[in-house]
Computed example of a mutant assay.
Amino acid sequence: MISTDKIFTRSELLQQVADWKAQGLRIVFTNGCFDLLHLGHVDYLEKAKALGDKLLVGVNTDASVSRLKGPSRPLQDEMSRARIMASLLFIDAVVLFDEETPYELIKAVMPNILVKGDDYAIENIVGHDIVLNNSGEVKTIALVKGYSTSGIVDKIKQQLKG
């Protein structure tokens, strides 16, 4: 399997998720921009995968990242970010989403487990209501301190000034 085999359109993803659920597999969902892949991401995603059988990652489109992070972002285009995510062994499926939040995607996928970093309170995680109201679980994972894409970008900018 090559990494692009794990990048799905929304309709393809829904069929794949239905197949996995029919096999009794537990679906874990998380999302993010993943503009620069770093140790914090890898640690978080490995821990997310350990919570279930299949890890599905929603990746913000370029337009969505720009709306969230500003006009200088993303640093990498959406297909590059999706393919990098799909290349990770512990990720089973990647899907792009263009909305401000993954709410509609979560509603369509109906994961067994919704995961975000511990910088979120459960009641502030987008989609927590959908998952909890459908007998699912919402969990947070401790983030590795000192790792963020914004922090890396700031460090590069400082070094270029110096």
Rank of each mutant, 00 (worst) to 15 (best):
F97R: 03
E100G: 02
C33N: 15
L45H: 04
V115K: 01
K47S: 05
I2M: 14
F97E: 05
Y147L: 11
L56M: 02
D154L: 08
L39Y: 14
L88H: 01
K107H: 13
V94A: 00
F90Q: 11
K107C: 10
V59G: 13
G162V: 11
I91Q: 05
I84L: 14
G40I: 13
D19G: 02
V95P: 04
L13G: 03
V138C: 08
E104N: 12
Q158R: 13
A121S: 14
F34Y: 12
V17D: 09
I27F: 11
L39P: 11
L96D: 07
V28N: 09
A86P: 13
N31V: 00
I84E: 06
F8L: 10
I113P: 00
A50H: 02
V95N: 03
K157A: 12
I106T: 02
L89I: 13
T61W: 01
I7H: 07
K6A: 01
P102D: 08
L89N: 14
V59Y: 10
F90I: 10
G40S: 13
Q16R: 13
V28Q: 08
V153S: 02
I27L: 12
F29N: 08
G24S: 10
R10T: 04
A82E: 08
K107F: 09
T101Q: 13
K6N: 03
T149N: 08
F97I: 04
A18R: 14
V131L: 06
I113D: 05
K161E: 15
R81K: 06
E12S: 01
V131E: 07
L132C: 02
M1E: 09
M79H: 15
E123R: 00
K49A: 02
D62T: 01
L68P: 04
I7M: 08
K116V: 05
S66H: 10
E78M: 11
V42K: 14
Q23Y: 04
R67I: 03
K139G: 01
R73A: 10
Q76D: 14
S148D: 03
D118T: 09
E123F: 01
M79L: 12
L105N: 00
I152Y: 03
P111L: 10
A82V: 03
R26Q: 14
V17N: 07
K116C: 04
T4I: 06
Y120S: 09
R73H: 09
K107M: 11
G52W: 00
K49V: 03
S135M: 12
G58C: 10
A93D: 06
V138G: 06
L114C: 12
V65N: 11
V131Y: 07
E104D: 15
G24C: 10
G58N: 10
I130M: 00
V59T: 09
V65Q: 12
L88E: 04
T140E: 10
I152M: 14
S87G: 13
K116L: 03
S87Q: 04
